[in-house]
């Protein structure tokens, strides 16, 4: 089953790539607008051979990780606080919703103005995206704590911080972790969009430079590198998640031995 899926995935990829390549070579579509896979592959190879890409990759990775960590920490702390403090939550609710409704792209120029063309403005943009994902998931995770488990902890003698440690945090952990996968994606978006709109380095900058000179090969090559970059980050996060959530039943395997 798994092998078959993999095979079909490879075949589909081959079909698309070869279809694209030959459509351009046979002159059905214009290479100026669509480039072609062999050129894109050559460009990527060139980037890595000359080492030109590494600086950009490194900057984007750094911005992504900073936005990811800062946004997640803020989001989790705020989520915990508001979920456990009903009054504060009621007061802040409309403000949070209003802030979350702002399209973040609009903020990019302001952040560039405030924080300059460097790393800080991209991190700020990423944080505004990541924060809300972490916040809403933590909030929800705390709200969905199993009341029986909570009552059990209280009967066993837990209170205050102990409830947080033994019940609320572990219970919210699966929500927080599933949010991490989304968050890392958003952190990348923050970094790349920020770079795209004004920077001196990074994958977003690379793509925007290529666009500036109608270099479609460069644009597509940047996109491919970016996609692989995100897939690798996502894979890393899911590995960490699997390691930390060993107690969670695999879907469809509840029950175990009698």
């Amino acid at each position: 089953m798994r092998a078959r899926v993999r095979l079909l995935q490879v075949l589909l990829l081959l079909f698309l790539v070869l279809g694209w390549e030959f459509s351009v070579r046979l002159g059905w579509v214009d290479a100026f607008f669509f480039s072609k896979p062999s050129d894109i592959a050559a460009r990527i190879a060139e980037w890595f051979q000359t080492g030109e890409i590494y600086g950009h990759l490194w900057i984007t990775l750094w911005e992504t990780l900073l936005a990811f960590v800062i946004g997640t920490v803020f989001g989790v702390v705020m989520g915990l606080w508001l979920a456990l403090a009903p009054t504060a939550s009621a007061v802040l609710d409309p403000f949070i919703k209003a802030m979350n409704s702002i399209p973040r792209v609009i903020l990019a120029p302001i952040f560039t103005l405030w924080f300059g063309l460097g790393v800080a403005s991209k991190v700020a943009l990423g944080v505004t995206l990541v924060f809300f994902v972490a916040f809403f998931n933590t909030y929800q995770g705390i709200k969905e704590v199993n009341p029986v488990v909570l009552a059990n902890a209280r009967m066993l003698g837990a209170s205050g911080r102990e409830l947080l440690k033994h019940v609320y945090l572990p219970s919210a952990a699966s929500w927080i972790f599933s949010s991490l996968r989304t968050s890392i994606g958003f952190a990348v978006i923050g970094a790349v969009v920020g770079e795209y709109l004004g920077a001196a380095k990074g994958l977003g900058y690379l793509i925007s430079q290529a666009e500036g000179v109608f270099d479609t090969t460069g644009v597509f090559a940047g996109m491919v590198v970016l996609a692989v970059f995100v897939v690798l980050l996502d894979w890393a996060v899911s590995r960490v998640e699997a390691r930390l959530l060993v107690w969670r039943p695999e879907p469809g395997r509840e029950g175990g031995t009698v």
Partner: peptide, 21 residues
């Protein structure tokens, strides 16, 4: 208190559950 529904901490092993109190 022995509850009707599952009251164990799913993120703790059997031993950790028993130790908690």
């Amino acid at each position: 208190y022995l509850f009707q529904a599952d009251s164990l901490f799913p993120w703790k092993t059997a031993l950790e559950n028993v130790m908690l109190g």
